[in-house]
Design a protein around this nucleic acid. Sequence first.
DNA 1: GTTTGCTGGGAAAGCGCTTGCCGTACCGTA
DNA 2: TACGGTACGGCAAGCGCTTTCCCAGCAAAC
Lengths: 346, 346
Amino acid sequence: MATLAEVARQAGVSLATASRVLNGSTRVVRAELRDKVVAAATELRYTPNAHAQALAGNHTASVGVVLHDVSDPYFAAIAGGAMRHAAEHDLLVMMSCTFRDPDRELAYVRMLHQQRAQAIILAGSGYHDRERTELLRTALASYQAGGGRVAVVSQHRFDVDTVLPDNQGGARALARALLDLGHRDFALVTGPEHLLTVRDRYLGFRHELGRAAAKLPNHRVADGGFTRDGGYAAVRSLHEAGVLDEVTCVVALSDVMAIGALAALRDLDIRVPDRLSLAGFDDIPTVRDLAPPLSTVRLPLEEMGARALDLVLETRGESDGPRVVRVAAEVVLRGSTARLDEGVRR
Amino acid sequence: MATLAEVARQAGVSLATASRVLNGSTRVVRAELRDKVVAAATELRYTPNAHAQALAGNHTASVGVVLHDVSDPYFAAIAGGAMRHAAEHDLLVMMSCTFRDPDRELAYVRMLHQQRAQAIILAGSGYHDRERTELLRTALASYQAGGGRVAVVSQHRFDVDTVLPDNQGGARALARALLDLGHRDFALVTGPEHLLTVRDRYLGFRHELGRAAAKLPNHRVADGGFTRDGGYAAVRSLHEAGVLDEVTCVVALSDVMAIGALAALRDLDIRVPDRLSLAGFDDIPTVRDLAPPLSTVRLPLEEMGARALDLVLETRGESDGPRVVRVAAEVVLRGSTARLDEGVRR
DNA sequence: GTTTGCTGGGAAAGCGCTTGCCGTACCGTA
DNA sequence: TACGGTACGGCAAGCGCTTTCCCAGCAAAC
C-alpha cells in the first residue's frame, strides 16, 4: 500500500508538493512537477488513505443513515431517495439497520459519531420509551456539539431538523374518504403503540371517525408487529373474534400490514372489496400491483429521504432553531375500497 | 470535541494508560486509575476518533456493500441479509447504490478502498462490457493487493469469492415445470442482455425448451429495463405484436418484471392463469401476495447476502483460490401458472 | 544596483490515537 | 540480604496526511 511519502520520493518532490498535486489544493504547482507526481502516483498505484486525510484535514464526506430495515419497502424507498441524492453530492453513505432494537440504534449513532460522519439521518425510529429516548437524545446532542448534523424522518421527539409526513392529517383524510364512501363500521389493524407513527395515524383516524359519530370500539382494533405477518395475524384474530362480520371496512395503519391483511382475507375467502373494503397507508410501490390494487395514503417516500439529506447538508445560521419540513399525505383510492350502497353490505 | 489527551490529563494519567482503559487492550490497569479515567471520559463526553484509531491501529470495522438500488426488493433482500449478519459482528456497513451506472460502481469501489474498508461486497453489478469490467477488475485487484477482501453476489466475472445462485439451473427447472404443466408456447420477458444474470437465465430457459422441442422464436422475446415498468412495457409490446395470442405462458426473468407483466395483463383484461400463465424469477417477498400469487424460482436472497459476508470475513489460507458458494434455486409453483388441459387453451 | 512583490517549493508541526519498550515497585524465594 | 520475576505506568515513535510558514528565485519598479 503506497503512501504519499513514497510517491513524493519517487517523484523527487516534497510531501507538500505531492499532496498539493494529488488532492485538490488551491496552490498551483508547476506543470513539470505536477506531471512527475501524477506519474509516480499512477505507477505506485497510490490510493489516498481517507482516515489520514480525515485526521489531518478534519473533514469527511460520509453521512450515516440509520433505519429500521432495508427489506421493508417503506424504508427502502426512503433510503433509496437519500442515496440517490447522496450520489449527486459525492457522499459516501453508511447505512445501518436497527431492526427496531433501540439499543442497536443507540450503538449505531455512537459508531457514526466515532466515524465523525458529517451527518446522521434517522428514519423510522421513534420509540415511545422514556429512558431509551433520553439516552438517544444525549448521544445526538453530544454528536451535534461536536459539529455533527442530524435530521430525522417521520418523528418529532428531538429538537433536530425533521421531515415530517402528515400522519394525522393523512389518517383523517383517509377516514373522511372512507366515510364518504358510506362506511360507518371499521376495524383497524394497528402496530405497536409505542411507535409514534402508529399513534399519530391511530389518533387521526379515530378523531375523524368521532367527528362523524362512527364507531371504533376497542375490540375492533387489533395490533400486531408492524409487518406483513403482523397484518395477517391481526386480521385472523379479528375474524376469530367475529369482528369482520360487524364491519364493512378494514384499515391497516401501514401498507406492509395491509398486504398481510389482504392475504388473510383472501385465505378466509372474504372478497375485497365486495364484502369488505381495505385500505392501507404509505403507498409503497408494490401496492398498486396487488389485486385489488390497494387504496392507501400516499407519502412521497423517496422525496422524504432526499429532503432529509438536504436538511442536513444545507448550511444554516446557528441561530435558527431546528427546521421542520412538512410533507403532505394524499389519499389514493384504488380498487380495494368500494362505495357502500344500500344492499351491498354483506 | 474532547480528545484522549484531555481525558488523560484530567485523570492525571498518561496517554497510554487512558488508551488502555478506554479501548480494549490486553494490558491490565489498576482499578483505581481505571476508574479515574472512566470518570474523566464520561465527564468530558469523550468519543474516540475512529479515524485516528484506524490510522494508528491499522484496522477498521467497516465493510462496503455496493449494489444496484435499495429500492429494488431483490437487492433490498440481499442487503438486508448482509446487514443483519453484519450487526452480529459489530461491523459498520457502508452501502452505496450504483443505479446500474458502471462509472458509479467504479467510483464507489475506489472510495471504499480509500476508506480502507475491511471488505467489499458487490451485488448485482455484472455488466457485460469489456472495458468497464477491466477497469473494475483493476480497481478490485489493487484493493485486494492492499489486503482488502472482496466478494460478489450473483456473477462470475472476477476471480474473487462468489455467492452464485444457480440461475441457469433454476431457469431450466422452471422450463421443465412449465413443460410438465403442458405448456409448449412461451413468450419471454427479458432484461438487458448485458446483465449476466439475464443471460444465464435466458440461456437456461431456452436450452431446456430446446430439449423438449418447444419453440421460443425471437419475436416472442421482449426486453425492457430490468424493472417493473420494463416488464409492463414488454408485455404491452408483445400484445401489440400479437404474440400473446400465440402463447399459453409468459415467463419474466425477474419477479420485479413479472409484477409489471401481471399489471399489464390485468390492464389488457387477460386473465392469469385462465388465459395465460405467468412465471417470474427470484421469489422476492411480495410476489406471494399478488393475485394470483406468482409462480417463480426461489432464491434465498437474505441468505445470499449473509453468505457473502461470511466469505469475506472468514480468514482463509492465502494459497486457496477464490471460493464459490453455489446456491440452489427452487421452483415454486403458485397460482399464476395453470395446467394446460385440453380445451383450456384460449 | 537596490528594493519590492510575487510565485512556487519545502520543512515541519500537528491531527488523535496505539503500542513497543523501558523503568519502577513490589512480591516471593533462596 | 540479594536476586529474579511480575505487574503496571509512562515515554515516545510512529500511522499518512494537510497546511502553515518560511525561503529562494525572479521580474518589475525605483
